[in-house]
Write a protein that binds this DNA or RNA. Sequence first.
DNA 1: CCTCCTCGAGTTGTATACAAGTATGCAGCA
DNA 2: TGCTGCATACTTGTATACAACTCGAGGAGG
Lengths: 218, 218
Amino acid sequence: MSGATTRNTGADFVYAELKRQIISLELKPGERVYEPAMASALQVSRTPLREAIRRLISESLLEQQRTGGVLVPALDEAEISELYEVRAAMESLMARNACLKATLADIDALEGILERNAAMVGFADEAMKQGMSLHGKIAAIAGNAWARRFHDQISNQMERYRHFTNSTQERRDQALAQHRTLVAAVAAGSPDRAARIAFDHVMGARDAAVRAMSGNPA
Amino acid sequence: MSGATTRNTGADFVYAELKRQIISLELKPGERVYEPAMASALQVSRTPLREAIRRLISESLLEQQRTGGVLVPALDEAEISELYEVRAAMESLMARNACLKATLADIDALEGILERNAAMVGFADEAMKQGMSLHGKIAAIAGNAWARRFHDQISNQMERYRHFTNSTQERRDQALAQHRTLVAAVAAGSPDRAARIAFDHVMGARDAAVRAMSGNPA
DNA sequence: CCTCCTCGAGTTGTATACAAGTATGCAGCA
DNA sequence: TGCTGCATACTTGTATACAACTCGAGGAGG
């Protein structure tokens, strides 16, 4: 038995590949996608390509223009702030729920992640990954599928802005400290406090990103 | 010049019509959708139908099974709680932002809606509409397109559960009172308080809905 | 010179034909 | 009886052909 969650269809492959190209900026913001060219590049016919494009449009990873035709959405400095805000709302909710549902084993797991995270100080990429895994664990504990869905969608969008929002070492140290207080709040079973910390944590990241962008105009 | 936002395509019509049927429960939860039958019922070929189906799947208004084939998602009592939570997070965020951005004219508009709302006491449907329009105005003031998007998606999902979560007159009175305090917080420029009120307001609706459902098992 | 129109290349939208996969019922057999 | 394997009808997935539309170039007329 393979663990595949869906039948392996060409449209799914095209979806994944296009998504990857968009998120990695391999397809440039503002660039138009022509169906015949893209279809032959991916070695499929226009039919599965179009189905993949529809999915991507409904996730705002592609954009349809009124006249017909499809575009990679342009990057917009104002949008990134909105993305952070929604992410803050989602993580805040998940922190609250995690607080209400966490078992002792869950709390041990969170603290374990925190320790490994602390060991990564100075390695930006690894620290980033650990931060993601902390959040992933919290999301799993919270167990709200819709929140996770939206959070993932937001993360995909934000990935496109990554190059413009590089974080500093100082910022990463601060993040680690905030993660500590967050886990402490979960361990203490204080949902309001956990929610507040998660919210402020992401909003702080927003402010840092906005500052970094205005300092580093694209 | 027509105000149409997109070219009038068959796929768009099919999308809107299917969405309507799903939300209104005209298509029953758990029911399978067969492409040839649905295509001929809507008088289009399978091609635009399939594109509409893909969009609906990515909004979770349809569900794809591993074997291929598409289903109207079943109603799930556990899910509605998650939907309310995410909606609470979104409205809370929007209330906060509205607080930060509202002009004096905006506040006047909110208070106007509140007055008209109060006049509707006793008319459940009208009161519901006014409640929506209050929230719509707050969303417009907040101006976070992603939050609005997600909120709309959640609202569509919740619509399917509407029949099982009828509210009481007492609950509607309470909602009106909470709306008053929310607008007051916005007028006073207290973002934290506004956010908190909005969150608790929706979470209260969640609790009421969950109670109503366990009392009225579907 | 400017405006408007026409025409044509090229693109998207739709229908249909075909290939691949899935489920159901029935015969054969232990 | 209960199970296996197969044949068949039907469904979905893909390719291709065709229709409708968009946009730009270029010429006619003002």
